[in-house]
Design a protein around this nucleic acid. Structure first.
Length: 868
RNA sequence: GCCCCCGUGGCGGAAUUGGUAGACGCGCCUGACUCAAAAUCAGGUUUCCUCACGGAAGUGUUGGUUCGAGUCCGACCGGGGGCACCA
């Protein structure tokens, strides 16, 4: 063996190519109608301080797509920015006495440098931060347009209050009764807040999910469930006053309820309204008992555990409801703790025979329980629902004109009747509600509204935009610093000129992220949020990549915002994201010291005996299961350190190997060193072979012997395979194919001129296939192969179809479905050739033991199965 | 409770429309190089029986469809996710 080839110096090489790409503005995107565009976007990060492994995985995946599409000839837009408003900045201000702005920009600087060290093919000229007035002024303008179009409104309602963040939350942001960010148990408060009318598009948001085939089925399903469409009926019940001795004068009007089971109306035994229902409120005025009941009910939290254990309570109201279908039948009306004001009409009719909740309630209060549906094979005389509600499909009974019908038909028939009588109508009810966007925070986009005692709520005139955040604020008091600011909120009313105050609430930060992808199409335009021509060219995002945790929140809000922009004719699209991919989390084992404290991976060490000890004192420690990397459990590995010790390409390669990208990835030291060794091995193999290669452009030899042909087949198959794998987001499979190609190159022994020609072809293919995954190493090898153009500017290799198919195939020979041998036959050989060859095999002859096969199944190019 | 997804070697995971289960990597074992180690290289590595040749079993369990099932269907067990007093 000759002298050992030099080691691959990743540190120098990675820095060199990053500089080169930057100097040449390689990844700058410009509109070009002559070329097809491809917009690749990863969910932009919140500038929390440092990047974490989740970012590394997310951005590596996006970069593979971006670089691949570039090589395939697409005009790629691959931008990056900062989701820069949000509470952690304010918390930092309180804890560390730094201004949120300074903290945010410091973090951006750090994280930007970290992202740059990853060698991502980003167009940094389009960088934006949502906390810049040049960004949010357009958001304010859009909001004003939405307001004029009736899509924004203020309402007083019970809202979800996060006691840790001291702000309200939208419904989507309450997970199992807790704040999505803080995990604090959410309280209920009644406040006047800004909302965006997302319900205006509910049906469209649901239906259009079917037109997003490049979204994960799972996400579409989650959104559909969230929207929660259900078909049913609204029914109006006349109320009769029973508070006085005789018929009293008071007319309580009608009680409107929603039900999905109008077929069970004849089984109604009571009515129930929410404690927040206007009827409860009105009657409570003169009834201290009811007041106490309402107060008590509101105390029950919304957490899952509490809801499950909470007993159903009712308070009988001094009114009766007239059954709309049974003349003379009057039902008691309760205020009940289990009826939600936010869904339907906040009122229900109780049918204990066929609803578990109603059953529980009726049992407790001794209300009648009549069966009106029974299984089709049940005996009407003995069928009973006294013990448990029957909630399945069946045959209607005890229901006059509905008797004998099935549930579905019964629903249709009773709706017809209710509509004819004018006492009800068939409707569709959704779970989805409007988006509450007010937040009582400083570090966010100011809501551009002014409150005037005379004129009411007045929009800030366009000429006064942006409404900028004041910088001289203090965080020493609880509550919203904008409220405490001595001067900021005092302004003249734009209408009457009188003294007025600014709205001090700011937008939910999900507003900022609902249109940043639009802004990337023209990030520096001052006059408008984006240029219509650029927008039409670049949008929609062809491939969006991010975490599954945004399946509902961010993605649904963005879909809404896109529609709202369409409403005010700002843009013409229906959907912002054509393709969506949700990547899995990055996990790591957890370590616990004997005293119960968590340990960082770098603080522990594996001993020769297989034990795990603390490095400092060699105390054995407990290894916990692998979980999502989190600061609280200290199972984190800093990307900076990995990039410093092994290089960006190693980190990227490891992120792409082994685990399918949508699944969780287990970060292991062994995996990283394995990835690092492969980088070194590749460099060694390829640079070791380069001196043997014919020069670039050498004409193809007339004759290629079998080893050369085999190598060419391997290379061209790799092109086809890697391309298909990248398109399908099977990066782990693409990596496996590159390992195979490396093995094929490494085991090549022939060194004749024709083979070396094939070897050059193969190495050039190989390096180009590596480009999207390990761009620095690939760029370095491309140079070593003698190219002067950047690999990043070079086209993707084309596979020769002729090399993708073998002329002989190996097919399996089975005896009664069990593998006995394999045979080589010409590709597409006639069935009888394969059959004859198979039957002549000694294994088959032996297995037949003189018997005649009953049947021989032959699938060309696949299998021969001999059946006895 | 309702809806959805997933169970394959010691580990991460591959397996077109049902057609050679375990690609590729990690780990481990053996050998080469070395005074030794690291690195590197060569070989092996599903389990069981057999000196070997060879054979049998095998994709969570169980039943079925089929010439043939990891793949399709039914029931069950286990893990994960979403929704949840939503009428």
């Amino acid at each position: 063996m000759s002298s050992t080839p030099a080691r691959y110096n990743f540190r120098e090489t990675e820095a060199k190519w990053q500089r080169e790409w930057e100097d040449r503005q390689t990844f700058r995107a410009r509109m070009d109608r002559a070329r097809p565009k491809y917009y690749v976007l990863e969910m932009f990060p919140y500038p929390s301080g440092r990047i974490h492994m989740g970012h590394v995985r997310n951005y590596t995946q996006g970069d593979v797509i971006a670089r691949y599409k570039r090589a395939k000839g697409f005009n790629v837009l691959h931008p990056m920015g900062w989701d820069a408003f949000g509470l952690p900045a304010e918390n930092a201000a309180m804890e560390k006495k730094v201004h949120p702005k300074a903290w945010t920009y410091d973090n951006i600087a750090t994280m930007k440098a970290q992202l740059k060290s990853m060698g991502l093919s980003l167009d940094w000229s389009r960088e934006l931060a949502t906390c810049e007035a040049s960004y949010y002024r357009h958001e304010q303008k859009m909001f004003l347009d939405f307001w004029k179009a009736g899509l924004a409104y203020r309402s007083e309602a019970w809202v979800n209050w996060d006691p840790v963040d001291n702000t309200v939350l939208a419904n989507e942001q309450v997970i199992e009764g807790k704040g999505w960010r803080t995990g604090a148990t959410v309280e209920r408060r009644k406040l006047t807040q800004w909302n965006l009318r997302m319900t205006h598009y509910t049906e469209e948001l649901l239906e259009r999910l079917d037109t997003l085939p490049r979204w994960p089925e799972k996400v579409r399903l989650m959104q559909a469930n969230w929207i929660g469409r259900s078909r049913g009926a609204r029914v109006f019940w006349d109320l009769v006053d029973t508070s006085g001795d005789g018929p009293s004068g008071r007319d309580w009007g009608k009680l409107e309820i929603f039900t999905t089971r109008p077929d069970t109306l004849f089984g109604a035994s009571f009515m129930a309204v929410s404690v927040d229902h206007p009827l409860s409120a009105e009657l409570a005025a003169g009834d201290p008992g009811l007041q106490a009941f309402i107060a008590e009910s509101r105390k029950t939290g919304t957490a899952a555990a509490e809801v499950e254990t909470a007993e159903k309570h009712g308070y009988k109201l001094p009114v009766l409801a007239k059954h709309p279908l049974i003349p003379g039948k009057l039902l008691p009306v309760f205020a009940a703790n289990f009826v939600l004001m936010e869904y339907g009409t906040g009122a229900i009719f109780g049918c204990p025979g066929h609803d578990e909740r109603d059953h529980e309630f009726a049992t407790k209060y001794g209300l009648p329980i009549t069966p009106v549906v029974m299984p089709s094979d049940a005996d009407p005389a003995s069928f009973s629902v006294a013990k448990a509600a029957f909630t399945e499909d069946g045959i209607l009974i005890n229901s006059e004109f509905l008797n004998g019908l099935d549930v579905e038909t019964g629903k249709a028939r009773v709706i017809e009747r209710l509509e004819a009588m004018g006492v009800g109508k068939g409707t569709i009810q959704y779970r989805q509600r409007d988006w509450l966007v007010s937040r009582q925070r400083y570090w966010g986009t100011p809501i551009p509204a002014i409150h005037c005692a005379k004129c009411g709520v007045v929009p800030v005139p366009d000429k006064d935009l942006p409404v900028e955040l004041p910088e001289d604020v203090e965080f020493d008091k609880p509550g919203n610093p904008l409220d405490h600011h001595p001067t900021w909120k005092h302004v003249a009313c734009p209408k009457c000129g009188g003294p007025a105050t600014r709205e001090t609430d700011t937008f939910d930060t999900f507003v900022n992220s609902s249109w940043y992808f639009d802004r990337f199409t023209a990030p520096h335009l001052a006059a408008a949020p984006f240029d219509r021509e650029e927008h039409d060219y670049w949008m929609p995002v062809d491939q969006y990549i991010g975490g599954i945790e945004h399946a509902i929140l961010h993605l649904l809000y963005s879909r809404f915002w896109t529609r709202a922009m369409r409403e005010v004719q700002m843009a013409g699209r229906d959907e912002p994201f054509d393709g969506l991919f949700t990547q899995g989390m990055v996990c790591h084992e957890t370590y616990r010291a004997p005293d119960g404290s968590w340990l960082l991976p770098e603080e522990v060490e594996r001993t020769a005996g297989g034990g795990v000890v603390r490095r400092s004192d060699r105390m054995p420690i407990e290894v916990g299961r692998s979980e999502k990397m989190s600061k609280s459990k200290k199972n984190v590995v800093d990307p900076d350190e990995i990039i410093r010790d092994y290089g960006a390409d190693t980190a990227r390669w490891f992120m792409l190997s082994d685990s399918p990208p949508e699944r969780d990835l287990e970060w292991t030291e062994a995996g990283v060193t394995g990835a690092w060794r492969f980088q070194q091995r590749l460099f060694r193999i390829i640079t070791g072979l380069i001196p043997l290669l014919p020069p670039i452009g050498t004409t193809r030899p007339a004759q290629l012997a079998e080893p050369a042909m085999a190598l060419r087949r391997a290379a061209h198959r790799a092109i086809a395979g890697v391309s298909a794998d990248i398109e399908a987001f099977h990066f782990n499979k693409a990596v496996a194919r590159l390992y195979e190609l490396a093995n094929a190159v490494d085991s090549l022994e022939a060194r004749d001129a024709a083979t070396l020609w094939a070897l050059r072809e193969t190495l050039e293919i190989f390096v180009r296939l590596l480009g999207p995954m390990t761009p620095h190493l690939a760029e370095e090898l491309w140079l070593a192969l003698g190219h002067s153009a950047l690999l990043a500017d070079s086209p993707w290799p084309m596979a020769e179809d002729a090399l993708l198919v073998d002329d002989t195939v190996t097919i399996a020979v089975q005896l009664n479905g069990k593998l006995r041998a394999t045979i080589q036959v010409a590709k597409d050989a006639p069935k009888d050739v394969a059959e004859r060859t198979a039957l002549a095999l000694p294994e088959i002859v032996r297995g037949l033991a003189g018997k005649t096969p009953r049947r021989v199944v032959v699938v060309p190019n696949r299998i021969v199965n001999v059946v006895v």
